[in-house]
Structure formats: C-alpha cells, structure tokens
Simulated assay, not measured.
Amino acid sequence: MTGEVATLSVADAVDRLRSPDAPERFSPVSGQPLIAVELGREGRALAHHELAAARESLRRIPAPSVGLRRGSLGQGAKALVDHFDVVVNTPSELARLGERVSANPRAASTLVQLLRHGETRDVEAGLVAESLAYSTLQAGPEFATWLAGHTRGPLRPDPRPAVRMWRELDRLHLELDRPEKHNAYSAAMRDALCEGLALAVADDHIEEIVFSGAGASFCSGGDLDEFGTLPDPATAHAIRTTRSAARLLARCAERVRAEVHGACVGAGIELPAFASRVSAHEDAFALLPELTMGLVPGAGGTVSLPRRIGRQRTAWLALSAERLPAETARDWGLFDELHAVEPG
C-alpha cells in the first residue's frame, strides 16, 4: 500500500463492517491490512442498530481502522469516531500510516488488538498480554525479516554498572548510565533498574524516586545488539514477566519523577510514562520504532502510554513510528512539564 489510501464513506464502512465476513475482509492474512474511513462523508443516514453493529465490528476486525477527519462530522461519524484505532487529519498522514501497516501488517494488527482490549485490563494483566504478543511476533516472519537485515555488533560487558543508584535522605536516584550507547536498554540495565526499583517498593521511607539518564539521551530504546539472542520466544516471555521494570514502576508510580531529555525511544518513553510526573527538556522527543521491526512495544508501553495519552494517540505513535516533539508530547500529556536545555 503506497501513495494515497482509498477511503470509504461512513455508510459504506458500516455496511462492510456489519458483514459476517468483515474479520476475513479486513485482515493481515486474507484481506485488506487496513480500513480507512472518511469521517466527513456520511453517504446516507444510519440507524442506531447499524452503528452499534459497526462499533462492535471495529473492535473485532484484525486490521487497524483509521478515521480521516475532513470537514464537519455527521451523526454516523460522531457515533463511530472514538471507536477507530487511529484518527488522522490529512491524507498524507493516512498515506504514511498505510505504508507502515502494509510493511508489517501482522505486527500492526497485533498492536491494535492489544490496545483495544487493554482498556479493560489492569496493569498486571496488560503487561502479561503485551509480553505474550511480543513473543508471538518474535517468532513471526516480519521480525525474522528485520533480524536478517540487521548487522549485530559484538556483545561486550559494560565498563561500569548500567544504572547508577544513590540515596539522599528520603530520595532515591536511579540514573541510566550507558551514555556511550545513548543508554540503550540492555539486559544488564533492565536487571539493575529492577534491583533499584525493588528497593523503592520495599522501603516506604523512600518518598521520591528520581529516574534519569546520563549523557545526550535519556534512553535510545532496546539494545539492538541483543535482539534475537535469547534461545526462544517462550524464554523471552518468561524473562520479561520475571524481571519487569514496568511492573515495579507501576507499583511505586506515585513516588516516581522521571527526568527525560534527548532521545526517548521505545523503553525510553514506555518506562517513564508510568511515573506520576515526567519532566522533559525541550530537546526531548518520543518515538516508538518497534513496528518497523515487526514487533510491538515490549517494555510496558501498551499499558503506560494509553493511560497518559489515550488509545488512539498511542496507536498513532506506534503505527507511524514518527517522532513526537517535546511540545506536542506535553500538549498530549505524555510530558507534564518542559524545561529549557541548559547551555554546555
């Protein structure tokens, strides 16, 4: 799917969504990998029962659904707009999403299904579902294609602990400390972060946890040199659900203040989004690149981000794999406050 994406009127979309074969028609394996609807084009008046059936189908079809907001919304569009996976404002934005989805349709389908059903899950259930989805995709063809094209660097031990931890009275500092790799989130970093967070969970005398990163970036996401190094997806799932920084952050979230700057990629935005307060430098940007690898966010982002910015914006961020600048992140609620970058 390249170039302009064909759109349906609201009425045409409702008719197709109500069809018994809708899950087959809008599917990454047997039909269209995306359904796009022009929300300003009604087509005809729609009955309440038709709209109710379409809403249910939007939750059930495997393919992502995208609403294109153009012009004023009629009755049908108003009834459906909150039920699409993503809502965009321009045809060019829709075209970019279409290209991303077509390149990795299984990952895109898995992502939106995970987000749809995540609205009714608690944090623990959401993290388990995310890990299972991630492991499923690790065994899939899209990740295999990415992995085959990725040149892995040599795995070398870090010259120092991957997380600096120190305490000032009732404040605990946890600083990601792999600046030479832009704080790429490695297994060693995950384990060290879990150790520090476990201390915070166990010690209620710690009133504040400051979560930060050394160097030019807060965190550039998962260490790509480690991708595909575990023996199998089942083991990867077991490790993710055993050593989960996301779970620990959620347990002490009300005491966590994240201080982010520069690149906040993958885990670098998924984890701080659990914090009760995210303070960002003006040079910070958020990015979820996992779909381009045939994966979904795997560090808790399908749980933490929707709680801050909602399901549709989370889906846009993950499906588009585009940078979200600091000001937009603040306006959306992903960052709580911005600070000027200090000179030097």
Rank of each mutant, 00 (worst) to 15 (best):
A273C: 08
G126H: 09
L127R: 10
T314Y: 02
A318L: 00
R311A: 00
R277Q: 14
G43F: 02
A280W: 13
L249I: 12
G298H: 12
P297F: 02
R243T: 13
A273M: 07
G213I: 04
G333E: 08
R190I: 06
L230I: 00
L288P: 08
R247N: 05
D170W: 00
W316F: 11
S57M: 06
L172N: 11
V163S: 08
R69T: 06
P272F: 06
A267F: 11
H117Q: 14
V88K: 01
G215L: 11
C219Y: 07
A162K: 11
V101C: 07
I209K: 12
P23D: 02
R59P: 00
P159F: 08
L230N: 11
E119D: 05
C194F: 08
W332I: 07
A192C: 06
F227G: 02
T2F: 12
R190C: 04
S320L: 07
L115C: 10
Y134V: 04
G301S: 02
A13K: 01
G215R: 10
D225T: 12
I239K: 10
S244R: 13
A77C: 06
H117N: 11
M165L: 12
G71I: 04
S109P: 11
D191I: 12
Y185D: 03
E290H: 10
L17V: 00
H237W: 09
P343E: 10
G344Y: 01
W332S: 13
R313D: 11
G344N: 02
D225R: 12
E93D: 13
S131I: 00
A238C: 02
S135P: 03
T242I: 04
L137A: 09
E322S: 15
A6R: 02
S220Y: 10
R55Q: 14
L127N: 10
G228H: 11
T241W: 13
R156D: 08
G266S: 15
G31D: 03
S279Q: 14
V128C: 01
R323E: 10
I209C: 07
W146F: 15
L324F: 05
M1R: 00
I209V: 15
G298R: 01
G221M: 03
L46W: 06
G140H: 07
L147N: 09
S212H: 00
L80S: 01
E4W: 03
R257S: 14
D204C: 00
E24Q: 11
A184G: 15
P233M: 11
E142K: 02
A284W: 00
A184Q: 15
D203F: 05
H117V: 14
A187E: 08
R116H: 15
S304R: 04
R96C: 07
L115V: 03
R190G: 00
L137N: 11
V128G: 05
K78T: 10
G262F: 07
S57K: 06
A47D: 13
A47W: 06
L319Q: 05
Q75V: 08
R69H: 11
